[in-house]
Computed example of a mutant assay.
Amino acid sequence: MLPKTQLNPPFNITRASHVSLTVTDLGASRDFYRDVIGLVVTEETADTVYFRGLEESVHHSLTLYKTDGAPLADQVGFRVQTDDDIDRAAAYFASIGIEHRRVDKPYQGPTLQFVDPVGTHIELTSSMDVVERKMQNYNEFKAGAPQRIDHFQIVTHDVQKATDFYHTLGYRLSEYTAKDNTDELWGTWMEVKGNTHDLVFTNGRGPRLHHFAYTVPDASALIHAADVAGAYGLGHEIDRGPGRHGISNALFLYVRDPDQHRIELFNTHYQFIDLETPPIRWDVSNPKRAQLWGMPASARWFFEASEFADQPVEEPLLAATPDTLEQYLQLH
C-alpha cells in the first residue's frame, strides 16, 4: 500500500548526510577510499579517518573506525535543519516509543541516534564544522572524483513498515517496486531533498546497509574509477556496472572496499520536487528496473550487505528469488 506523504512532519530532515563504518585495517581502507574511489581525507587519527567529497563544505560524509571485531555498518546519517529539530526529534521519538539517545560526536553539532522500526541505526545532526570545498581544485580530482554523498540503500525484512515510518517524517515516494498489478511494496525510493532518493528500502534479510552513494561529475568519471580499480588489481571488487538503472535513470558503478562494504558512484538523477508528480511503479518482474541495459546483477550484489552492531537480522516477509548474473550466464 502506498503511504501518504506528511507535509508537516514532526521535525525537518533536509538530506542524506553521512555514514560511519567499522573496518579491520584502517590503513588499507583509507588507501581504498582515497586512491581507488577518490574521496578527500579531511582528518586522520590512530583509530579514525574522516572523508568528504570534493564538493562538500562539511568536515565529513564518511567516517571509518578501526575495529578488532567484524566490520560493520555503524550509523547512517541525515541532516536536520536546526538545533531545535534535534529537540523535536527526541520529543517525537519519546512519544512513540522509539529507542534514541543524544551523543557527542567530534566536528558535529547536536546529534541524536535512534533505531528505526525495522532496526536501522540512524544518526541525525543539525550542523558540522565547515571546511574548504575542493570542487574547482581539478588538480586534486582522483579516480571517480566523488562530489557529495547522496543516498543510502537499506535491506529490510519489512519494506512496508519502513516506508510508512519514514513517510511520517516527511520523506516522499518517488519510485517503487511491486508485484502482480498490486501495490504490495518490495522496494521504495524516498526523498527529502528534491531528487529521486535519499533513502531506499529493498526486500531481504535485514536490517543491513546495502550501499551508500556519492555523485560523480560525469560518465567518464565512472569509467575512470573502474580503470583505477583495475590498475590497482581490484577489478574483482567491482560489484556491478558500469550500467544505467531504470529506477532513477542513473549511471552507476558499485565497488566493494577491503572489508566488503559497498559504495556506489553514480550520476544523472532527475528532479522530483512538484507535489502533483506521482511515484513511478516498476514491476519486480521487469529487469529494466535495476539495469536498463538488461544484464542482471551478481548473486553477491543481491544477497550480501553490511550488518549493524548488536542488531538481529530478520528473514524477509516477502519471499524473493531474483534473477542473477550467474543464472543468466548458465542459460546463455
Rank of each mutant, 00 (worst) to 15 (best):
A91G: 02
G97A: 11
Q153C: 09
T5Y: 02
D129I: 02
H261N: 01
E123V: 13
T125M: 12
L124E: 10
F78E: 08
L275Y: 09
I247C: 08
S29D: 11
G109E: 06
F93W: 00
F141H: 03
E304T: 15
V155H: 14
F212G: 01
Q108D: 04
S29P: 02
L209N: 08
N286E: 15
P110H: 13
A225L: 13
H121A: 09
F152T: 11
S285K: 15
I13D: 09
L2F: 07
Q113S: 06
L112D: 03
P279K: 12
I96T: 05
N249R: 05
P106G: 01
A213Y: 06
Y107E: 04
A94I: 01
I280A: 10
L251F: 00
V80D: 02
T48S: 04
I86M: 09
R52W: 12
L64Q: 08
P217G: 04
E276H: 11
A221N: 04
L26P: 09
L112T: 05
R262H: 14
A145G: 08
T168M: 02
E276C: 09
D274A: 14
G69W: 09
F308G: 13
E191T: 10
V41H: 03
L318T: 06
Y171Q: 11
K288E: 13
I122W: 12
G206I: 04
L72R: 03
G144D: 06
A226W: 13
D84H: 03
S20V: 11
R101N: 06
G109T: 05
H157T: 04
Y33L: 06
V313Q: 00
L7F: 07
V19M: 11
R88H: 00
L21D: 08
A94E: 03
E184F: 01
I37F: 15
A16S: 06
S95Q: 00
M128L: 11
P278V: 03
E99I: 12
T188S: 10
R52E: 00
T67D: 08
S298K: 14
W293A: 12
A309G: 11
E315A: 15
F252I: 07
V40C: 15
